[in-house]
């Protein structure tokens, strides 16, 4: 709508600002906590802005001194990146052919439905069998076995996303490529996949976030620095007798950075509307 009254405009902007404030306030508070001296965090009444800015916790967590909190944190960061990255790549690589197959062959759609059905099971129900299986194969406390477990969560989700993405790509385009002499793989590589890139990026991003934030399985299946992920490491920070809330907040800020970077990096690929122009309108 082009024509809007001034009051309407003000109301719209106010509503948008309010929404942004509600969403951003916890993040801002997280950051403020991470740079407040411990005394300020315990002060009554609460200080909203620290007397002196204190970056010492960042130094602590990013230090590489052996057996320090920093070493544990950095190891967890590395593990998280490995687990989430591996699981995401595997999930997307699986989802592309699987999603395409389901999208182009509606008669096998039930199989995807079945897999999505397993999604409905609470993780607790699967925890014990998964633990026993991993223990049996000696795969506990291992980043790649954790990635494998995550794959069982991510793959149905990414396949489902990819399927809906492929659904929006007209089959005529693939039929045309087929008549032009392109084989199945040439069609997928040259025609279909480039058109599906926005969906691939979206699935990758969401899969990465899911894996990055996962806590339950990570807590159960990892034991030490060789495999513990960030979520577990942060929980460890809170687990001692004295909890340094500022330190937890700092770890939270640092843990939020990689997904934000991935999001920024993927932004270009996420721009959709790439299929514009191939078909009518």
């Amino acid at each position: 709508m082009e024509r809007q009254s001034l009051a309407r405009k003000i109301a719209l902007h106010a509503a948008a600002l309010l929404l942004a404030a509600v969403i951003l306030a916890p993040l801002v508070w997280l950051f403020v906590m991470s740079i407040s001296p411990p005394a300020d965090l315990a002060a009554k009444p609460l200080r909203w802005w620290p007397e002196a800015v204190d970056f010492s916790r960042y130094r602590l967590l990013l230090s590489t001194v052996e057996n320090s909190a920093g070493a544990a944190f950095l190891a967890a960061l590395r593990n998280s990146l490995l687990v989430a990255g591996t699981a995401t790549i595997a999930a997307v690589l699986l989802a592309i052919p699987a999603g395409w197959a389901v999208s182009r062959t509606p008669s096998i759609g039930w199989s995807l439905g079945l897999i999505i059905g397993t999604y409905m099971l609470p993780p607790v129900a699967l925890a014990v069998p998964l633990y026993m299986a991993l223990a049996h194969f000696g795969l506990l406390n291992n980043v790649f076995s954790l990635a494998l477990v995550y794959l069982t969560i991510l793959a149905p989700f990414t396949t489902w996303l990819m399927k809906s993405g492929f659904d929006t790509i007209p089959r005529d385009i693939e039929a045309a490529a087929m008549m032009d002499g392109a084989g199945l793989f040439a069609t997928l590589r040259i025609v279909t996949l480039p058109l599906a890139m926005p969906v691939v990026a979206t699935s990758a991003l969401f899969a990465f976030l899911l894996a990055w934030d996962e806590f339950f399985y990570a807590l159960l299946f990892t034991a030490d620095q060789r495999a513990k992920t960030l979520t577990v490491a942060i929980a460890d920070l809170a687990g001692g007798r004295v909890s340094d809330y500022g330190l937890i907040a700092t770890a939270g800020v640092l843990a939020a950075l990689p997904p934000v970077l991935v999001g920024l990096f993927m932004q270009r690929a996420l721009i959709s509307g790439l299929t514009n122009g191939g078909v009518k309108g």
């Binding site: 007209p170 005529d172 385009i173 039929a175 045309a176 490529a177 087929m178 008549m179 032009d180 002499g181 392109a182 040259i190 025609v191 480039p194 058109l195 790439l274 299929t275 514009n276 122009g277 191939g278 078909v279 009518k280």
Partner: peptide, 28 residues
Amino acid sequence: PKDRDVAMVFQSYALYPNLTVARNIGFG
């Protein structure tokens, strides 16, 4: 279809949106 020596023009045009016009025409 590719071995039948037929070519088809679709109602939706079914052009390859990610390729240039020249490559679209020369794709076959």
